[in-house]
Amino acid sequence: DEFHFHWNGRDIRVRGDSEELRRLIEAIKRGELSEEEIERAIEILER
């Protein structure tokens, strides 16, 4: 699976399928994380 979302003017695409990944992306979409937490998560996910 590939998750695709927009954040902070960026087009983010992440491959993978796990419950943890889904929860993280939902939290990002709901605005539950700080900008710094989101940046760090995206860096890890894009590897």
Rank of each mutant, 00 (worst) to 15 (best):
G9F: 01
E2T: 09
E46A: 05
V14L: 06
G9K: 01
G31W: 05
E20Q: 11
F3M: 08
H6N: 09
H6E: 10
L21D: 14
L24K: 01
R40M: 13
I44F: 12
L24G: 00
L21T: 14
R10A: 04
E35C: 03
I38A: 04
E39A: 06
R23M: 14
R30E: 12
F5E: 00
F5S: 00
F3A: 02
I28T: 02
R23G: 13
L45W: 07
E26W: 11
A27L: 12
E26D: 12
R30M: 14
I42H: 02
L24V: 06
H4V: 15
D17L: 04
D11W: 12
I44T: 08
K29Y: 11
G16C: 03
G31H: 09
R22S: 09
H6R: 08
H6C: 04
D1P: 13
E20K: 07
F3Y: 14
H6T: 12
L45P: 00
E2Y: 13
H6L: 06
V14W: 05
L33R: 01
E46T: 09
E35L: 09
H4S: 11
R47E: 15
E19V: 13
G16M: 03
L24Q: 01
D17M: 04
R30A: 15
E32C: 06
E26C: 04
G31Q: 07
E2A: 07
R15T: 15
G16K: 05
I42K: 01
I28Y: 05
H4C: 09
E37P: 00
R15H: 15
V14A: 04
R10P: 00
E39H: 08
H4D: 07
I12Q: 00
A27F: 08
E32N: 11
V14R: 00
R30I: 09
G9C: 00
S18G: 09
N8C: 02
W7V: 04
E2I: 11
E19L: 07
R22F: 13
R22I: 14
D17T: 07
R13A: 14
R23F: 13
R13F: 15
E19F: 07
L24T: 04
S34H: 05
E46D: 10
I42N: 01
E39W: 06
S18E: 07
I38C: 02
I42S: 01
R40D: 12
R22C: 05
D1F: 10
E46K: 03
N8Y: 02
L45Q: 01
D1I: 12
D11L: 13
I12R: 01
K29E: 11
K29S: 11
I38W: 04
R47G: 15
L33G: 02
I42P: 00
E36P: 10
N8E: 05
E35D: 14
I44D: 13
G9N: 04
G31P: 02
S34G: 07
E26V: 10
E35Q: 10
G31I: 02
F5I: 06
E43T: 05
A27Q: 15
E20P: 11
A41C: 01
L21E: 10
I42T: 01
L21A: 15
I44W: 13
L24E: 01
D1T: 12
G9T: 01
V14P: 03
I28N: 01
R40S: 10
I28G: 01
E43L: 07
A27P: 00
E19T: 10
H4E: 11
G16P: 11
V14Y: 15
E37K: 03
E39V: 08
R15C: 08
E36F: 09
R22T: 11
F3Q: 03
R30S: 15
R15E: 14
L24A: 02
E39M: 08
R23T: 13
I44A: 08
I12T: 00
A41S: 06
R30Q: 14
L21V: 13
E43I: 06
L21P: 03
E35F: 13
I44Y: 12
K29W: 09
G31C: 05
S34V: 05
H6M: 10
E26M: 11
R23I: 15
A41P: 00
R13H: 15
A27R: 11
G31K: 06
E35M: 11
S18V: 09
E46H: 05
G31L: 04
N8Q: 11
E2V: 09
R40Y: 12
S34I: 04
H4R: 09
G9P: 00
G31S: 04
I44H: 09
R40V: 11
A27S: 13
R13D: 13
R15A: 13
R15N: 15
E37D: 11
L45K: 00
G9Y: 01
W7H: 05
E20H: 08
L24M: 07
E2F: 13
E2Q: 07
I38G: 01
D11A: 06
E39R: 07
L45V: 04
E19A: 11
E43R: 05
R23W: 12
E36G: 09
I44G: 05
A41K: 06
G9E: 03
E43K: 07
A27H: 08
I12C: 01
F5H: 01
S34C: 02
R47K: 15
E26Y: 12
I42W: 05
L21R: 06
R10Q: 06
D1W: 08
K29H: 12
I25G: 03
L24D: 00
R23N: 14
D1G: 12
R47H: 15
R40G: 07
D17V: 05
D17F: 06
A27V: 08
I25W: 07
N8S: 02
F5G: 00
A41H: 05
W7G: 00
R10G: 02
H6A: 05
E2P: 04
V14C: 02
E39N: 08
I12S: 00
R40C: 05
H4N: 09
I12Y: 15
R22V: 14
R30H: 14
N8F: 03
F5P: 00
E20I: 10
V14M: 05
R22G: 08
N8T: 01
D11E: 11
E19G: 07
R30P: 00
F5M: 04
R47A: 15
E43N: 06
I12D: 00
R47V: 15
L45T: 01
E39G: 08
L33Q: 02
I44N: 08
G31N: 13
D1N: 13
E20M: 09
E46N: 07
R15V: 15
I42M: 06
F3L: 10
G16L: 05
E46P: 01
E2N: 06
R15Y: 14
G16H: 06
F5N: 00
H6K: 10
F5T: 00
G31M: 06
R22H: 11
I12E: 00
E20R: 04
E26I: 11
A27D: 12
E26H: 11
E26S: 12
L33H: 03
